[in-house]
Structure formats: structure tokens, C-alpha cells
């Protein structure tokens, strides 16, 4: 068992910034002999909208090879969004990220409604994991919603504007 899987779900309520919402994701540091940074897809699903990809972190230059070959390992994202995108455009793609805390903006143009943030990670020689965080706009009461998971993904939080 990986130590990180012992972590209880964490409700992470990041301090709300003045206006913009944000998404924060912890990638756990894993005590494994062969570690590769995970591929990560972050997208938003909601009634009446196409699944919307917010970010894809992957190895676009894998020793000169486009790492797109492995994007389908993010099988949840690939099915609902990735396969329709093909090579992720520069607006949403980025390099793989190191273990630690990462924050990206929540799209500012989401209309009022109920949504689910999805974060999926797949790691070479490692596992695959999907975390879902429901949230509603405009926010009611609390400042955000959070969820945590085990092996490949740590705490995930949505901070609402």
C-alpha cells in the first residue's frame, strides 16, 4: 500500500482570492524506485455542456517523441473529451508537473449551474486515478468544495469566485 493512500479525504478550502475561482491539485510524492511524473487531465462536466478540458499535463517532448501516444491512458478523459481534441491545443496543454501543490484558474466564463470537476492522473509504471469534485455556481454558503483521494492524486479543491 502506498503511504499516501492512508490519507483521509481532505476538505481543502483555499482562501478565496478577490474575484477569480481556482482549482488546486496536490500530486503526492511517491516513494517508488522508478518515478515518472503523471499525465494529468483536468476537465469540467455539467448538464447541457460538452465536457470542457481545462488542462492536460503531458510529456509533449518525450525525447523528441510527441507523448500523445499515452494520452489514451487517461481513459476517462480520453473517452469524454480527449479523443475529440486529438493533440491538446496550447491553450490547455502543459508539461507534466512535479509532486506538490498546483493551482490553476477556474474558467471565468462558467454560467450558473451544477458542475463536476474531474481530475484524472495516469503514471508510467504507476497507477491511474480519477477524482470528482462537484461544485455549484454561483456559490452558496461555503467558499468551495473539496475532495481527496489516495495513490495518484492527493487533495483536490475548487475555490469558487
Amino acid at each position: 500500500m502506498k503511504p499516501s493512500s492512508l490519507l483521509a479525504p481532505v476538505l481543502a478550502l483555499a482562501p478565496a482570492s478577490a474575484m477569480a475561482g481556482s482549482i488546486s491539485i496536490d500530486l503526492p510524492r511517491l516513494p517508488v524506485a522508478e518515478y515518472h511524473r503523471p499525465y494529468v487531465a483536468i476537465w469540467i462536466e455539467g448538464a447541457g455542456i460538452q465536457p470542457r478540458t481545462v488542462a492536460v499535463w503531458y510529456d509533449a517532448d518525450h525525447r523528441g517523441d510527441p507523448g500523445t501516444k499515452w494520452l489514451s491512458d487517461l481513459r476517462g478523459w480520453w473517452r469524454v473529451a480527449g479523443r475529440n481534441i486529438g493533440t491538446p491545443p496550447s491553450g490547455i496543454s502543459g508539461a507534466t508537473r512535479a509532486p506538490g501543490h498546483h493551482t490553476i484558474p477556474l474558467p471565468a466564463d462558467l454560467k450558473p449551474g451544477a458542475y463536476t470537476l474531474k481530475v484524472e492522473a495516469a503514471r508510467e509504471t504507476g497507477g491511474r486515478e480519477l477524482v470528482s469534485v462537484p461544485f455549484t455556481l454561483p456559490r452558496t454558503g461555503g467558499k468551495g468544495a473539496g475532495n481527496g483521494a489516495g495513490g495518484e492524486i492527493g487533495a483536490v479543491a475548487v475555490t469558487l469566485p
Partner: peptide, 10 residues
């Protein structure tokens, strides 16, 4: 081996 492929040259 698999039925679903991504990338430029599968």
C-alpha cells in the same frame, strides 16, 4: 492488444 489509440502514429 488494445482497441483505443491516441497519438500521431499508432
Amino acid at each position: 492488444v488494445a482497441t483505443t489509440y491516441s497519438g500521431e502514429d499508432p
